[in-house]
Amino acid sequence: MSGTGDQVSTDGEHGSPNGEPLLVLEGIDTFYGPIHILQGLNLEVRAGELVCLLGGNASGKSTTLKTILGIVEPRNGTVRLEGEDVTRRPTSYRIRKGIAIVPENRRLFAPMTVLENLEMGAYLHGGGSKEDFERVYSLFPVLYERRSQLAGTLSGGEQQMVAMGRALMAKPKLLLMDEPSMGLAPILVERSFEIIKQVHEAGVAMLVVEQNANVSLSIADRGYVLSTGRLVLEGKADELRENEDLRKAYLGR
């Protein structure tokens, strides 16, 4: 249906049969000019997992996402999606393999309606079927009420829902979320993460990039902590929450 050049083979709902993780980053070195941003990054997301990537400002979180999406190309290392090496593949190819992203600051199409925004999310699937819309509306009932309203006139929380709904319309295997708590009031941050948890429980693997360690670790299966381009901590979310260094750095107690 997409009609965009070469078709991507898809084998199974959750990753390839040989147990290969959905996404693997291996020994990634990314440079901006002479500046070494990501230094030997290793990271993986398994099918159905919710992984969070934590880090302060300038720790390389966004660069990691850009490397996964192919917006920047790493100098060394490989990016594998369902076992296939996509390091030298363009962004469009990776999107068609089943990655979707909720970008930082949401990046909605402001003068278009909620319905049109959702439809554009399913661009590769011919604009989305009735079931796709119903799935998103059942997760976010308020979007059904606002479907013919311009996305730019919605409040911040509703815009966040449109951004997530738009990404889910693509029926992704892996959903990337870039700072979902940014620009939201504390109460909305918690609600936003409840929604992330719900989406995850529906079977979508997620990589959530966040500064807010407390909330994101509370819903994640595993977590990675980045600092100036290096992984400094990784492990199960519960263990990370108990970790003394992390507490000092992020949780403030």
């Binding site: 997409s2 965009t4 999406l69 962004t91 469009s92 999107i95 068609r96 979707a100 992203i101 970008p103 990046r107 909605l108 199409f109 402001a110 003068p111 278009m112 049109e116 554009m120 999310g121 661009y123 590769l124 738009r166 693509a170």
Partner: peptide, 16 residues
């Protein structure tokens, strides 16, 4: 129109 509003977001949705 999506392309006009935000070309990067449009590309991330798989639009050619």
């Amino acid at each position: 129109k999506s392309l006009r509003e935000d070309a990067l977001a449009a590309e991330l949705m798989g639009m050619p």
